[in-house]
Amino acid sequence: MLKRFGTALCVAVIIVALTGGGALAGTFPDKNLKIIVPFAPGGGVDVTCRMIAEVAPKHLNGKKIVVENMPGGGAVIGQTYVAKAKPDGYTILAYTSSVVSNPMTKKTSFTHTSYQPIAMYCFDPEILIVPAKSPYDSLKAFIEAAQKKEVSVATPGYSTSHHIASLILEDRLGVKFGYIHNQSAAMQVQQLLGGHVEAGMMAMGETTQYVKDGSLKALGLMIDVRNPDFSAIPTFKEEGIDLVWGAFRGLAVPKDTPADTVKALDEAFKNIVADPDFNDRMQKAGFPVVYRNASDFTAYVGVVAEKLGKILPTLKKQ
């Protein structure tokens, strides 16, 4: 029995080896791909990656994308895993702002340059939000108050992109906030709705419903020009603070991935992000789709890293 099992195993190994060898000659991809999400299931990154996986087979010769969650270490665990993965294009990282900030705030074996970006599919601009009953009716009023006293600002967690956005704002305004760090955006919303904190930094997509029904007030967006869907929300630029910031969501592979494979992935994800089904779902769920191809995304991340490098010495490296 055991012997027969052994033989079967040998045959299986040989078959796998042969088909695996065939990959060299075949076109990419010839097996299923894997997206490593360095967060627990259920968050924005996880949900959007699962939306990508759903439409992917149409654009990947019928091959599937399997989403695997690898949470821990403030996303360091999953990010390290992909940085060290075989650079064959089959292991993809859900590449978010924390890839840039983690190496600056924690000891990591990678930096953002350890990856080859493939595609950015979402950009959610940063929003400054206050409770409905807040005395601050405008960005100007908020800034004036912050210059006089320590305003409490809720974030979804220490060293998240929203905490970093507040640090940049502190730096620009020359003020000091009292930070209320949470474990999730949900707790942050609870504190804002209950009026326990004076302000909060969030991604615009997470706040739309509260702003619409009037339970929270939006003071300003960190974008270049007013968003046509939310034309009532002013930009920071209008107040003389030239600040563009937000959470980006994209995909990347290990940096030594062959150029052909990167090209194939770049092409495939261009079609995936353009897929009407994907766009429809993203729009319904309130995630703004913004596409950048491999080279534009690489350049963009470089700019973000440069900005962060200037500000992050305030978040001391431990």
């Binding site: 259920g42 949900v47 999730s184 949900a186 919303v189 739309t208 509260y210 309130g286």
Partner: peptide, 25 residues
Amino acid sequence: LGVPGNSTSALFLGALMIQGLRPGP
């Protein structure tokens, strides 16, 4: 309110949003 009470109801929030629905009043 649209605020998930725990990690499981947070997933309901996700499921509602994907259907194009916004939890809350």
